[in-house]
């Protein structure tokens, strides 16, 4: 079978994580400078580099610039990231000279909670002083969100994660919507895509409210609405997400293999 023939073959046997990773990868353009964290973002960026975007530049917050690992690393401080990087710089430098100065095109973010405007909580569930669940905290997210040209959010969709009101705003997305993000004085255009296990959401061009644009194969609008803690806006021309191709899936499994 030729590579082209493989590419056009749609896969049927894949996991939800694989689907989300492949969508995140497709969303990257060749030449993008991408600020990645561990997990799906790191795997997605490495997959893009192996498939449609060979010139994507990977930067990890541990200070490795233009790194080319053979496999998606287990931690942001993996030794292979330093060994294969064009440059290894300090943490103050990566955040100041590279992120804050505007040298990053795309930043990846995840969260425990997300609201309709793509604001994120990774700090606490419940009251801050008497939390029900204490989460890890901010990490690099608040400045990735305002320093990168745009952000890509990867998060499983449920009424626990897609909430009407965040318990704590760790990281700003489109703020209160309708252009209020820009009025804060932040740089970058904010979340451009939210990739879930059910579908793909994008901000409305006027209100900035996240709108369901696409459903993954086999998923329904009813499921998406039921998994959202606010009245979910659905695009009038809802599409079906293209299933992973055999080529994408094979490349992904090579990148992920450990």
């Amino acid at each position: 079978m030729t590579a082209e023939a493989i590419n056009t073959t749609t896969a049927t046997d894949y996991t939800t994580d694989e689907m989300m990773t492949i969508i995140a990868s497709r969303d990257l353009n060749n030449g993008d400078v991408v600020f990645v964290g561990i997990g799906i973002p790191s795997t997605a960026a490495n997959l893009a580099r192996r498939t449609h975007a060979p010139d994507v530049v990977l930067i990890y917050e541990s200070g490795t610039i233009d790194t080319k690992p053979t496999r998606a690393p287990l931690s942001i401080g993996d030794g292979e990231l330093a060994e294969t990087a064009v440059a290894v710089v300090s943490v103050p430098e990566i955040f100041a000279y590279w992120l804050q100065a505007g040298r990053i095109d795309v930043g990846f973010l995840g969260a425990a909670q997300l609201d309709r405007h793509g604001n994120l909580n990774t700090t606490v569930i419940g009251d801050y002083d008497h939390p029900r669940v204490r989460l890890p905290g901010a990490g690099g997210a608040p400045e990735i969100a305002i320093g990168a040209g745009r952000t890509s959010i990867v998060l499983r969709q449920s009424t626990r994660t897609f909430v009407d009101k965040l318990d704590y705003v760790t990281t700003v997305g489109h703020h209160h919507g309708s252009g209020s993000r820009a009025a804060l004085g932040v740089r970058g255009s904010g979340p451009s895509i939210v990739i879930t296990d059910i579908g793909i959401l994008r901000p409305d061009p006027v209100t900035d409210e996240l709108t369901l644009m696409s459903l993954h194969p086999g998923r329904t609008v009813e499921e998406a609405i039921a998994a959202t803690g606010w009245p979910l806006k659905v695009a009038s021309e809802l599409t079906t997400t293209q299933a992973p191709s055999e080529l994408e899936l094979t490349a992904l499994r090579e990148v992920s293999a450990r």
Binding site: A138, P142, I146, Y168, V169, G185
Partner: peptide, 13 residues
């Protein structure tokens, strides 16, 4: 100084 924390609850705590 830095560009940071804008629009977050971190500054409140």
């Amino acid at each position: 100084t830095m560009r940071g924390y804008l629009g977050t609850d971190i500054t409140k705590h």
